[in-house]
Design a protein around this nucleic acid. Sequence first.
DNA 1: GTGAAAGCGCTAACAG
DNA 2: CTGTTAGCGCTTTCAC
Lengths: 334, 334
Amino acid sequence: MKKHQVTIKDIARILSISPSTVSRALIDHPDISKNTRDKVQGLALEMNYQPNAIAQSLRKSKSNVIGVIIPQVVHHFFSSVISGVEALASQNSFNVLMCQSGESAEKEIENIQTMISSRVDGIIISRTKNTKDCEPFRRILENEIPLVFFDRICPGIETDAVLIDDFKAAYEATDFLIKSGKRHIIHYAGPEGLNISSLRIDGYKQALADNGINANEDLIYRCDDFEIAKETTEKIIASGQLPDAIFGVNDSAAAGAIVSLKKAGIKIPEQVAVVGFTNSPISTITDPTLTTVEQNGYDMGYLAAEILLKRINGDTKPPETQIIPTHLVIRQST
Amino acid sequence: MKKHQVTIKDIARILSISPSTVSRALIDHPDISKNTRDKVQGLALEMNYQPNAIAQSLRKSKSNVIGVIIPQVVHHFFSSVISGVEALASQNSFNVLMCQSGESAEKEIENIQTMISSRVDGIIISRTKNTKDCEPFRRILENEIPLVFFDRICPGIETDAVLIDDFKAAYEATDFLIKSGKRHIIHYAGPEGLNISSLRIDGYKQALADNGINANEDLIYRCDDFEIAKETTEKIIASGQLPDAIFGVNDSAAAGAIVSLKKAGIKIPEQVAVVGFTNSPISTITDPTLTTVEQNGYDMGYLAAEILLKRINGDTKPPETQIIPTHLVIRQST
DNA sequence: GTGAAAGCGCTAACAG
DNA sequence: CTGTTAGCGCTTTCAC
């Protein structure tokens, strides 16, 4: 037999007063006698009363829940973002409902349905790399649920976003490599169709161009994870066309490059310099330690949550894109 | 003006039928005419009806939400666990509500309150290293909310748990070091008062004892993160009392040891071998790559969720502790 | 200062 | 097969 949790009614019955009075006493309503308020709160504490948040939500049409949809929690960047979201949420008595799309566009649509059904008060998303159709996101807005994108956006959706300046960050990283004497720079790029991938490619190309270096498409490899980066690097070494630098779209790709380069006895950074992206903990563990772009996931999540809460509280100014500053963290790999 | 979301009533009104019929049609109740069912489902789709999960929860006294409380998402192990929980949850139409205690016992209590108020159907927890009082956990059970611990348990609470055999894993790791000729083995241990810390210490000591090595308490340092491990290792090197092996309570501590040893020009594993714990991605990135204990966080989360769902579905057999198998992954650092 | 009544959106008896 | 009714637990008018 399920012991039922203490309700307002129970308290009312015991004190022989009405449920509405109990409710008022519990939420410190102004016109309630000090006497009954103390009696109610005392008994509530004693009986270990916990308000039923579900009933409150239904009544007030407000769940106090923020939905977060990300591709994978098991990624330092994404878990940092969640951490930032959760921090601000809990400061403001909001809870965080988390779904993973697992980079599947179908799962992402399900996640969105879930969030709408759960009547979350707002949603924070970084989309799948396979998302083609932006309609599901539009449906969120049609349901008048505030939506904030971070990192990976969906072009054409008019809503808030928290990003970094991917172009500039990639430009600076590449430019730094050139300034330190490198000219034959390979880029391990992110998946096609993702804003962050193409902007980083663009920044990389522009830096080459501005320094009078031919930006050959052959220098760009689609390669955004550790294992693939190891293989790709091995192939490049085997081809005999050794670059003098590799710029990775993330730290894992850069770490993979480092591992394979060292295995082949290639000196880093003397022969080949390596730059990563994100400044995750692995960048201090590689040997040599990794020069990388600092991209503060926690701050991005925190800011995204801040914007979202403002929207939830009725802010109606036109959608804005906020840029979190980045900078190059220089270590031994360059 | 907030556009109100489509409800069962709206559909009923338009089709001139009763809300209950609409409800039945939507959940494919057996005794409903094919005709009205199709009409209702058609209109629901057209109007983009999304059931109000909050109302459903209130009605059925079941939220279909699993609460997860962990110290920090930004840890490969914990995010793996969450990932496993989320995978099973979403397969079973459950959602995941996530809170971080941030290793603060007070925050943990708040989190528990939140979960109870949110009427989650079950809770999965790995406790804070500062948790002294187990009463808050007991209150969960008093509220008849199923509770599963993982990794870090609270002794004295009679409930399910998903663990690894910390003693055995530490024993095997230490024994392996001894078998490979090491005898002066330092242990970087986890924080006091945590089951995983003391069990790993015990396993380490027992392996030494069984091999006729004196388990000196001076060989044990409290040191469970990368930075502190770097410093600790530097101090040990400076002291001149170089061990011939270091066994870390986690991979970060082991990685810190590796970094400082190399910096001092000490050969790994020839002079000092290093073993970690968890088999996180960093173990393949250190140079030399790290021998470590495989501890599958995803499986732990998945299994914890499995057990929890059984309890939610009424399973009342006595609390069980399930052990996820571990094994030593041998790499270059030994 | 307190109580009665209504309703958030949904589902599950119970009737017919 | 469908409608009526009631109620999950809470808050909020509206009376008194």
